[in-house]
Nucleic acid binder design. Sequence first.
RNA 1: GUCUCCGUAGUUUAAUGGAUAGAACAUUGGGUUCCGGACCCAAAGGUUGGAGGUUCGAAUCCUCUCGGAGACGCCA
Length: 666
Amino acid sequence: MSNFVEEKFSGKAPILIKKIKAVIKSGVSASFPEVQDTENLINIEHPSNKNYGDYSTNIALILAGKLKMNPIDVAKKISRKIGEYIISGQTISFLSDSNSKDKVMFKADDILENVKSELPGFVNMYLSNKCLISQMTRLLKMDLSLIPAKSEKNKLNTLLQGSKIMTEFTDPNPFKDFHIGHLYSNSVGESICRLLEEFGAVVKRANYFGDVGMHVAKSVWGMRKKIENQKSIIENLEKSPLKKRVEFLQDSYATGAKSYEKDEKAKEEITRINYLIYMSAQELMKKKHNLTPEVDYGKYIDVQEEEINEISRLFIYGREWSLSYFETIYGRLGTKFDYYYPESEVGEKGVKIVRDNLGKGVFEESEGAIVFRGDKFGLHTRVFINKLGLPTYEAKELGLAPAKFKQFHYDFSLIITGKEIDEYFRVLLAALKQIHPELAEKTLHLGHGMVRLPEGKMSSRTGEIVSGIELIETVKKKIRDKIEKSPSDYSKSEYENVMEKAAIAAIKYSFLKVGLPGDIVFDPDKSVSFEGDSGPYLLYTYARCRSVMKKSNLQKQSKSIRDLLTALGVTLNNEERELLRTIYLFDEALYEGTRNFAPSIICSFLFETAKNFNLFYQKHSILKPAGQDSIRQKETILFRLALTETVGAVLKKGLYLLGIETTERM
RNA sequence: GUCUCCGUAGUUUAAUGGAUAGAACAUUGGGUUCCGGACCCAAAGGUUGGAGGUUCGAAUCCUCUCGGAGACGCCA
């Protein structure tokens, strides 16, 4: 299945990959002139074992059958040819773009220093020090640590320049808690947005929230009950801190949900309240946006003026409190939403769409409800408007798509949710395709794994959930316990800031480093780590880079670094070379990570970079290199500072793309 | 029952059909007169749930099977 991003990325690999492929292509054509269409046959990869070089191709294994030769002989012939190119400094050229006539020319020895064939028939290529250093210089010159990027100059790639992308993620429900599932969805969504933006896309973040429906009715019922018991009024609560009010709401929901299960009378009342809430939401909509309601809920029940006023007040207060609370969370997590879509509003639109398409072969009435016959498309049949005349989630979401498009004429709409609604979404897209094929085509649903606690499924109904904020606070406390052992000169606000950032880094990283589809078994005590492959490890490494840079007086030297780099001799020690062999992969990590909507690829890259930097740091002194004459020593210092600066910039940028903020000290 | 997704060291997991399945945590042992020890090095730990098949080559693709999760008409 191809999607918008996939199409934009297709055939547009990072420049170094194109160069490598061009070298291989020349080598193959020269060795075996009879082989046609070599370009499409060439695959390259990074050997898992670094001893096998930086790039490797299996072209010989593929051609062996056609040529009726032993694969290793084919590989030998090709690698001998490429070896000749390297020695003679052969000029290689290729078209920068399949559509353009711009030729890119370079010399083989600019990028490669060695090539070898290996059994069973691989051709392995080794990048030259010159190439590795120039890759670093390129990153250094881009001022990657400027965040957000000021211009294209600060961006590694512009494949999505000008594309308009709308994303939707997080989607918490007012009146209920913001739990770790939402935290996960938010981390994934925000990171994907930033990746898309990095490639030049204009990204609008949409937040869709369920402000109507049974969960709200249950909450409001609970609110009323609790207020009655306290012989109080809702306005009294308004003065208490937001945290207290939110706790009150969550408690109300639990009360309502429990009574709904057990108590027939409560169930009846809640069903009635449900209508009243839809009506209250309509009033709100009229006031706020001057929109006319589509549906007359009054015809389903007899409404008492006093009753609806009471429900309406509870609903409006509760809704506001919840939404303000969510804003405080988004602030801490670093997400800023552009558009908000309350379910109440898009539900109205959805109902209209469903009714307009009734009897046109899309929707039909069945057992008093309006359904979409998904079984015609090999899918499930689903109810869009229930027999009570209320829109289900399906109809609401159906109203959402055109509402989004109206506000922002997107080229691509990406909806990120838990995968439990994967199949539901297929039905929805099939229905949307019947009505708005042009929108359905532009829409992709990305289902991610669910967060579970070690005991089993997380359920808000049974109270077995972990609140997002609780988790952040727990992690913060753990970090505090850890850090108090090492004394420091933090001011109080800096200390708080570092705790907060480290906690959020730890949590987000623990979510993002794993692939999207798998479920996350999340043990709040164990899953968030501060050592090894973790967020704080990366923050620590960044702070270490900054610390070295501060002690170096680089400002005075930064100009000479750049002058020097081009002229610098290319002797590298083992650790320096290994570090450079990691850094140059930043381009590819971004490319793959964005193309596949996979922040985990960025995580792996950053960890690898930090690890190699720390190893280098441990083994060699940056500011006081050992045993050299003073001129040579100065050059070494400058080179190592450039390396440190690049690592810092790459870490800062990479972490930003994961939605994680760095600190200068920690 | 039907459909979808997933099974990889004790744990959490990586690996566009490639080479000796790579890490982190935990375990054991070691390191720093020097730029930040939230650091670094080493060891041990694997029949990729199982059985067939396709392929020069399978954790990856196909079939069967066992186990887990989710969806399957009026919750979201």
